[in-house]
Design a protein around this nucleic acid. Structure first.
Ligand SMILES: [Mn+2]
Ligand SMILES: [Mn+2]
Ligand SMILES: [Zn+2]
Ligand SMILES: [Zn+2]
Lengths: 139, 139
DNA sequence: AGCGACATTTGGAATAAGTCCAAAGTTGGA
DNA sequence: TCCAACTTTGGACTTATTCCAAATGTCGCT
């Protein structure tokens, strides 16, 4: 897609073929992929891509503000193209990470702690999804 | 300390010398040590302790409810003897993790999300500490 | 077009955190 | 005392990530 090239340019990122390929997956996904998941997804269409480039690119995107990186599960980082404030639900059973809109949860007092310069906060919720609803269309 | 032996017994944990040594550090600390930090702290007084035993013991304590384990920083898990609900502040500059009492922050709506069985949640705050306030001493 | 400076990519080696394993040591109760 | 179960251990292994130095690509300039 052409928009991605523009997006990279406006963020002062040279749109190499590799970066565009990574961007077209990781800046669009609704999931919260690990570096390895990005690697697998993108090598499907760009088989020569190397793991080192995936890491380079993800870190560059984080530095340029196109992605957030965080650790919710032990052992791996995940990347999130949804960079505006929001909360997260982590499914204990599957490990899936789901966005919770910012204004669905009211938080008071988190940015007014003595001795602390708060840069950012979020609620992290753990649990499991309810039993899947019987065959009917969602939303 | 003798209390630790009792505590382990009441949690159905055989109080071996190694487990007692680990417990006397990790169940008492106000910090949020990594397994490696536990290993270093405890080998100071119990030099023959092995890394494998540290991991075994930490995981056992987690399973028995004496510790919580979580990932706030990429790359490592930390262990927390403060098992009641509370929030965490992570200092961006030092990586230090600080407890925030549960009732210092009001959170509404986190346990009432459609399709989700919430087991547990917490607010994770990131930022930096204010410049050190040296109340009396000049530096 | 050709050239050089610089940026980018690459495969593989190196690290770091954690897990696995099979042998050795320890223990509590018959 | 003896033994079966439990516990510990060093080291090999795995996994996620970083590092590295060589190869490749890009861009402006002539
Ligand atoms: Mn308890
Ligand atoms: Mn790791
Ligand atoms: Zn998200
Ligand atoms: Zn804590």
């Amino acid at each position: 897609m052409k928009q991605v090239v523009e997006l990279l340019r406006t963020h002062a990122i040279q749109p190499s073929a590799q970066r565009v390929a990574v961007a077209n997956y990781v800046l669009v996904t609704k999931e919260h992929p690990t570096a390895e998941q990005v690697f697998h997804a993108v090598t499907a269409t760009f088989p020569t891509l190397s793991r080192a480039t995936v890491y380079n690119t993800l870190h560059l995107f984080v530095k340029k503000g196109l992605l957030k990186q965080f650790a919710l599960t032990e052992g791996v980082s995940v990347f999130d193209p949804h960079v505006e404030p929001h909360h997260h639900f982590v499914d204990d059973e599957t490990g899936a990470i789901v966005d919770i809109p910012w204004d669905r949860i009211r938080v008071e007092g988190a940015d007014d702690l003595p001795g602390i310069d708060v840069r950012d906060f979020q609620v992290v919720i753990r649990g499991k999804r309810h039993r899947r609803r019987t065959t009917n269309k969602a939303t």
